[in-house]
Design a binder for these strands. Sequence first.
RNA 1: GGAGAGGUGGCUGAGUGGUCGAAAGCACCGCACUCGAAAUGCGGCGUGCCUUAACGGGCACCGUGGGUUCGAAUCCCACCCUCUCCGCCA
Length: 426
Amino acid sequence: MHDIKAIRDNPDLYEQAWSAKGRSGVTAEALALDATLRAAQTALQKAQSRRNDLSKQIGQAKGRKDEAEAARLMAEVETLKGVLETQGAIERETGEALRDLLAGLPNLPAADVPAGADENDNQEVRRWGEPFAIASPKDHVDLGETLGLMDFEAAARMSGSRFVVLKGQLARLERALGQFMLDLQTREHGYLEVSPPLLVRDEAVFGTGQLPKFAEDLFHTEDGRWLIPTAEVSLTNLVRDQITPTEELPLRLTALTHCFRSEAGASGRDTRGMIRQHQFQKVELVSITTPDQSDEEHERMVGCAEAVLKALELPFRTMLLCSGDMGFSARKTYDLEVWIPSEGRYREISSCSNCGDFQGRRMNARTKAAGEKATRIVHTLNGSGLAVGRTLVAILENYQDENGAIAIPQALHPYMGGLNRIGGDA
RNA sequence: GGAGAGGUGGCUGAGUGGUCGAAAGCACCGCACUCGAAAUGCGGCGUGCCUUAACGGGCACCGUGGGUUCGAAUCCCACCCUCUCCGCCA
């Protein structure tokens, strides 16, 4: 959500960004609504002020038993009724229209975000590790099914497409990955572990920006709640409607949760395997900061996500997304892409975004320093640290040997009860 | 699921139609007193919005949204949330 005052101060900047996303003219539309709204507010408040004044006098007149004066005053109030009603209606309707309009407009890219249309315009920032030399690599589906530990058919029978059943050491590997990531982020990077609700209200999903525009991407329950598509929703909403003392910022939160996505717009994409599922686990990182801390925190957060891939010794590259490839709420986003041998390319495994005050304003999350009078909207950041399912895919494919066995990365040995290999002779 | 109670400022808590944005206490801040502190005294102490060059002025907010009324924290309706008892349950 955008600050209408900022739009008023700098209309060209907004118009430029929104027309690039096919919404030319919305800036003028918003400003027109704003002008109407404020005119109505001023007229309404003037009338209300007069009414309050007269009402007070009516009370005093009645106190003196001066019924004639009271009647005269009441008649005068009567003449204000028309203004009160029409201006009140205009204020309500215009305010709502303006809110609805602003709520559907995406965040503006930060100044250092490259302009571009789609993923082809993203910029590689750095690269870590070399893709392993694997002769005719199998994909994770082949590997998992051959091991007898990954079953898409059983999942389809009970749940439909885009689900999977993991068994035995693969189920354990998934669990190990989640634990390992959570431990890394809490112990080494200072994030506070949180176990949040997975079902949330409309307001929560509105706050992070999935509503109102992206309802079809989410699962909705019959009692009117939403399954979270990411723990970003639950973690960020922890500060909704709160004034967090500035001294407590940055607030660093993490959670290992399941995530649920309808993948409505992804028909036909990644239908094979575990890359794109309706349900998957993810360790999420969220930071709540002051406005001046968020850029620095963003770089730090990317480092926290990268640390997981480094610890697992998986080759990856870090991409700075261009303006056209960023999500609705983000002002700047880095994606981490891990090497997937069977596809011979890098694929997204983490996305770290600085949302600026965009989400904070939507959820009325503010901060105030001790002794200060004014509150400020907080900045919010979120990133995956990492997506567990895709990490499992990357491990299977990158650590396979010619016999279809999987080596377990060193860092996970403690979490696998000392097991260092799945399949083969092990 | 059944029955009941309740949501007022950072906290406790008064207020059941009219100078109530809201008593009082606590907490906090400033000043005075003091060598300093405590105690005491005086003053201050919510949020958002509109308007103003500024000083200032105004509107709204007593869980949320509607309604009644000249006027609503107070009356009516709906919803949300919390608590207690019973039932059920991992």
